[in-house]
């Protein structure tokens, strides 16, 4: 790796400070004993965290978001693995189209998707259903899984699969015993990335959630438009902690640079 010169180093430090400062400040504010959004100068307090855990709406939204992210990441894996296998291994009519279709949610603004789904749900009478919310999140997180699965497949030594075939394994057994374990890092990484993206998603969710299925980011948004108190900071700190934990697992297991930059 190339060493950075002093100018580049200063630049990087400035960028990092700019990016991290708000996160650090919001986390500090979460521990304030005051009633206003202020840095804890007189002492540290957990009262705002207690307030969050005692707030039924926030807790309901938190669990709602966790389940939503779990289901949509899992469904995304279920779609992306077969799609990735088909796209990377076979040439068939519509292959490029399929690839583009699966990756398109990355390009279309979530605002547009939100409005579109809102109309669609109104038309088919699906407004307010948790299942349909899962469907929309699955659509927006599938591209992340697909990208990682494709990268894993492109780096895969096909001869191991061929060896399994010659040793007597059928196609399904070969997939289950050889291919799947070999691309497991890609699949797991994709699942975690999908989970984080679903858990953080706000723009589209504003349109497609109903009072019964409000996600945590939407709940925060609604709360913040009415009142600003340190409880928001506490919720933010919790979200940062969960996301950071997931990222840490990702990095430990597979290397973040590999996942985010792509293996190709």
């Amino acid at each position: 790796m190339q060493k950075n010169g002093p100018v580049a180093l200063i630049f990087h430090v400035l960028v990092l400070t700019f990016v991290l400062a708000p996160l650090v400040i919001i986390c500090l504010v979460a521990f304030t004993p005051e009633n206003t959004l202020s840095l804890p100068t007189t002492g540290l307090s957990l009262r705002w965290f207690e307030a969050v855990f005692a707030h039924p709406d926030f807790m309901a939204s938190f669990w709602n978001s966790i389940w939503l992210a779990t289901f949509s990441a899992t469904l995304a894996v279920a779609f992306a693995v077969p799609a990735g296998l088909a796209i990377s291994r076979y040439t068939f009519p519509g292959r490029d189209f399929l690839n583009a279709l699966f990756l398109s949610p990355l390009i279309i603004p979530h605002l547009v998707l939100g409005v579109a789904f809102l109309r669609l749900f109104a038309l088919i009478g699906a407004t307010g259903s948790f299942a349909w919310l899962v469907a929309t999140h699955t659509i927006i997180v599938t591209p992340y899984v697909l990208r990682l699965v494709l990268a894993a497949l492109s780096g895969l030594d096909r001869s191991a699969e061929q060896a399994a075939r010659t040793l007597g394994a059928g196609e399904w057994t070969t997939f289950r015993r050889i291919t799947a374990p070999m691309i497991l890092p890609g699949i797991t990484g994709g699942w975690l990335l999908a989970f984080i993206n679903s858990f953080d998603e706000l723009t589209m969710s504003i349109f497609v959630t109903s009072p019964a299925t409000v996600t945590l980011p939407v709940r925060m948004y609604m709360y913040a438009t009415e009142s600003i108190d340190p409880m928001m900071a506490a919720v933010s700190a919790l979200m940062i902690a969960i996301t950071a934990a997931a990222m840490l697992v990702l990095d430990r297991a597979f290397g973040l640079d590999r996942i985010l930059v792509g293996q190709r």
């Binding site: 030594d157 001869s159 191991a160 399994a164 050889i178």
Partner: peptide, 10 residues
């Protein structure tokens, strides 16, 4: 079959 790359299951 023995492959050129050995193709062991990692």
């Amino acid at each position: 079959v023995v492959f050129q790359s050995y193709a062991l299951f990692p």
